[in-house]
């Protein structure tokens, strides 16, 4: 407890941080809520002196938008696919890394590299890997001459190349590419957290389980996973939050088109929708969408916390 005599000192120390938070966090949040409830609010018109009536019209409009529903669907699909896959993969890799002695540090570094690499750059590499042809956008009758490395591999094993992301590609193929990319991008952080968790588990639990004759699978299921559950819960919750904010990964692979050449915007996400709304000076609509996104994240996180309260051992 701070002595009341010295409390003013504490406030002075806190003041710079509080000031920054007020300007860049608290005020924007407050303003977002305000704009969301002002009918058809537009920043441009507001500076010209227009006034807006209070109401929920922005929300109604956003929810009626076909494009918003498609963005919501894309976001949901990517979240539901990538969070479990990346969590399970990260867990397996972390357990694997933890159980090997030689080269552990080097492998750890390799697995962590994607984390320090720019996601747009990674996206471009992935786009090249999943390409059909070097840089062929255009008509349907284009002849396939060279393919990206993934298709090369598929061909090598005698399969037919898949149009992953180019003109005329399937929605499912697009989602598959996005899933691979997002999972790959999400792995390093999760591996790092889970590996840290694994290394903090007392080795004697494993010795005890071994003396009791538990199989490796049982040790994993009954001891490792429960003891790791706090980290797993953390990774899942932050994974969902990150998943709902997915945007740059789409830009990384599909560019600003947010979809294959023949169907721009097909893979747009919630954040993409907000971004687009802002760029057309429809701040009211953007704010409403942002609040809806906030609501969804809140509900999912509460759900996660509720489940983890029952399942997680602290």
């Amino acid at each position: 407890m701070v002595n009341s005599k010295h409390q003013w000192k504490a406030w002075i120390y806190l003041a710079p941080a509080i000031a920054v938070l007020l300007v860049f966090t608290v005020w924007p949040i407050f303003n977002t809520v305000r704009m969301a409830f002002l009918e058809n609010y537009s920043g441009l018109e507001a500076t010209n002196g227009a006034t807006f009536s209070f109401g929920v019209g922005n929300f109604v409009k956003v929810l009626k938008y076909k494009r918003f529903i498609s963005c919501l669907k894309n976001t949901m699909i990517l979240c539901v696919l990538t969070v479990p896959i990346s969590t399970i993969l990260a867990l397996l890799i972390a357990v694997g890394l933890n159980s090997i002695k030689p080269l552990q540090k080097i492998l750890q570094t390799i697995f962590f590299l994607p984390y320090v690499t720019n996601s747009i750059a990674i996206g471009m590499v992935f786009a090249a890997m999943f390409n059909i042809v070097g840089a062929f956008y255009g008509t349907e009758n284009e002849l396939i001459v060279t393919a990206g490395i993934i298709n090369n591999v598929i061909e090598f094993f005698g399969g037919t190349p898949v149009n992953w992301i180019n003109y005329g590609s399937q929605y499912s193929a697009n989602i598959a590419v996005m899933t691979v990319y997002i999972v790959w991008n999400a792995l390093p952080f999760k591996i790092l957290v889970l590996l840290g968790g694994l290394q903090s588990i007392n080795k004697q639990y494993y010795d005890a389980a071994r003396v009791d004759g538990s199989s490796r699978r049982r040790i994993f299921a009954r001891i490792t996973v429960p003891l790791l559950s706090p980290m797993l819960a953390y990774v899942v919750i932050t994974g969902f939050i990150g998943g709902f904010k997915e945007y740059t990964s789409i830009v990384g692979i599909f560019g600003e088109n947010m979809g294959p050449a023949d169907d721009a915007g097909r893979l747009n996400t919630m954040v993409g929708f907000i971004y687009d709304s802002l760029s057309t000076n429809s701040q009211g609509r953007a704010s409403a969408a942002a609040l809806i996104l906030f609501g969804i994240i809140l509900v999912v996180t509460l759900l996660n916390l509720y489940v983890s309260k029952k399942k997680v051992h602290y």
Binding site: Y205, D207, A208, A209, R210, D212, G213, I223
Partner: peptide, 28 residues
């Protein structure tokens, strides 16, 4: 160790913290 039929009590007991006493005893 699992094929020797030994019971071992560790210095700091190594009880599984996420299991109840009953589950701990039943585990072997």
């Amino acid at each position: 160790p699992e094929n020797r039929g030994v019971g071992l009590v560790f210095q700091n007991y190594a009880l599984y913290p996420h299991m109840t006493v009953k589950q701990n005893i039943m585990f072997p």
